[in-house]
């Protein structure tokens, strides 16, 4: 498998690349339509500053606090495509339930049409302080997600610092923590001991193929004029999985 060897070496280079040589590397490998099933989307920005169509998805290794395992890109490359979103459970404006709804619809469709073992569903939280295992379980129940299914994994870094670094540096997402006394009046979640805060973040869903190449990074996937219908995410996922 030439591809896997190549990806491994890229992963290693990627770590070193934080020091500054990533642009050269990316220039050599990005924007290649031959490695994707889906064509570039007309509606998305071309060459955006985050992993998008035709790019290698960045290497990661992040704990799953419910399964008590570590999930990494290598678990999927050569195995199965995955759909990923980025959220926090205390999300005040309904964007995060809407993001998770898109993953839930893929989970429902996969179970209905027998491709549940051929797709991974990853929900990454950048709020490890509040998103404890019990909180994540309760949230999954509320959102109708089968978190015990083999295809579902919550990803939660151990500390906020790690979460921020992954969000911003690795996944290329704007993230801003807002303390309550600045801009935010109230939160619906007052049953914790941490200070009240929220996040402004991009509402993105990323679809990555079996070779670790991004097929779609739906920018502003919810609550915007570029919002993507859940059914479009389902259809694109089916195409990438190869569901007849």
């Amino acid at each position: 498998m030439e591809r896997r060897t190549y990806l491994r070496s890229l992963g290693v280079a990627g770590v070193a690349g934080v020091a500054g040589c990533l642009d050269t590397l990316d220039g050599a490998v990005s924007g290649d339509d031959s490695r994707t099933v889906l064509s570039p989307s007309d509606d998305h920005p071309s060459d955006p500053p985050y992993p998008s169509h035709g790019d290698e998805f960045p290497s990661f290794s992040i704990p799953d606090p419910i399964a008590e395992t570590t999930v990494s890109l290598d678990d999927f490359v050569g195995e199965r495509p995955f759909v990923m979103t980025y959220f926090f459970t205390s999300c005040p404006d309904g964007a995060c339930p809407a993001l998770l709804l898109r993953l839930r619809r893929v989970q429902e469709d996969a179970a209905e049409h027998g491709y549940e073992d051929d797709i991974g569903l990853l929900a990454f939280t950048f709020d490890p302080e509040r998103d404890t295992s019990p909180v994540l379980r309760e949230y999954a129940n509320e959102q109708g997600i089968d978190y015990e299914a083999d295809n579902w994994q919550f990803l939660r870094p151990d500390t906020y610092e790690e979460a921020e670094s992954l969000t911003v540096d690795t996944f290329g997402m704007a993230l801003r923590r807002i303390d309550d006394d600045d801009e935010h009046e109230e939160s619906d979640h007052d049953d914790h001991d941490h200070g009240e805060y929220t996040f402004a973040h991009n509402n993105r869903v990323t679809l990555v193929n079996e070779d670790g190449i991004v097929e779609r990074a739906y920018p502003s996937a919810v609550l915007s004029e570029h919002a993507v219908d859940p059914e479009t995410v389902v259809e694109d996922t089916r195409t990438v999985v190869g569901v007849e």
Binding site: P45, S46, P48, P49, N202, P219, S220, S224, H226
Partner: peptide
């Protein structure tokens, strides 16, 4: 391009 799809 990010301005178009900017931080919500």
């Amino acid at each position: 391009a990010v301005a178009v799809y900017g931080l919500p």
